[in-house]
Design a protein around this nucleic acid. Structure first.
Lengths: 113, 113
DNA sequence: CGGTATCCACAATGATACTG
DNA sequence: CAGTATCATTGTGGATACCG
């Protein structure tokens, strides 16, 4: 009596919404090993603009994935890091990355029609 | 000698590109149990327009995820189904769906600041 | 039934300049 | 250093009409 589960989609969409931005994954990838300062992130991802960097960080923040920690007052130092909750998404990143790698190889090897 | 693996991102981006569309996951979700005809898909997803349906299906097709099979000539019947290669993405869908579900619960339970 | 074509709205991203 | 503000551009999705 399989009931044709048509649900599940809103959940996948929710995940997509959280890390669907153009730069979200890239930022998270750099953050997953250890916390990084704003300037470090900008140095690691030179192609991104300040606006997008801040925007994506703010969204990740409000989704509870990363935390923003101000280190000092006058010489502005801000560190971004995964929250404990945010770390629960890291296991997802792996298979995602793995599949994408195989997909790119396939695209190169086997010219699809 | 950990080399700060900054790679992997293009791979995740590649995956995102494949199933990043607004309707891709929804279509795949309905397709993962068994092949469906175009009209069935439209009936299952009434909110989507013909243009988007076709567009997303074509993209999934050219990415090798789904196949398009014409059944007859005069009474047009077209079935869309997962390819064997496409099925390799199903295991990814699960954790994605699972995390999204937890995330939505968290958003409801624990009002994030 | 299973599309294609055209035009349009809006969201996402980007460039650039300025600020505490 | 770590942002904010504004404007321009692009990309994605949608409405509608028409076709084999």
């Amino acid at each position: 009596m399989k009931s044709e589960q048509p649900d599940g989609t809103p959940f996948v969409q929710a995940t997509l919404k959280v890390l669907g931005g153009k730069w979200k994954l890239l930022i998270l990838w750099h953050l997953k090993d250890k916390a990084k300062r704003y300037s470090e992130l900008k140095r690691l991802i030179p192609e991104i603009t300040e606006k997008m960097m801040i925007q994506q960080l703010r969204e990740l923040e409000s989704d509870g994935i990363v935390s923003r920690n101000t280190l000092a007052e006058m010489p502005p130092k801000v560190e971004y890091a995964f929250t404990d909750y945010g770390r629960t998404i890291i296991p997802i990143l792996k298979p995602l990355c793995d599949w994408g790698q195989e997909h790119l190889k396939r695209m190169d090897t086997d010219e699809v029609d």
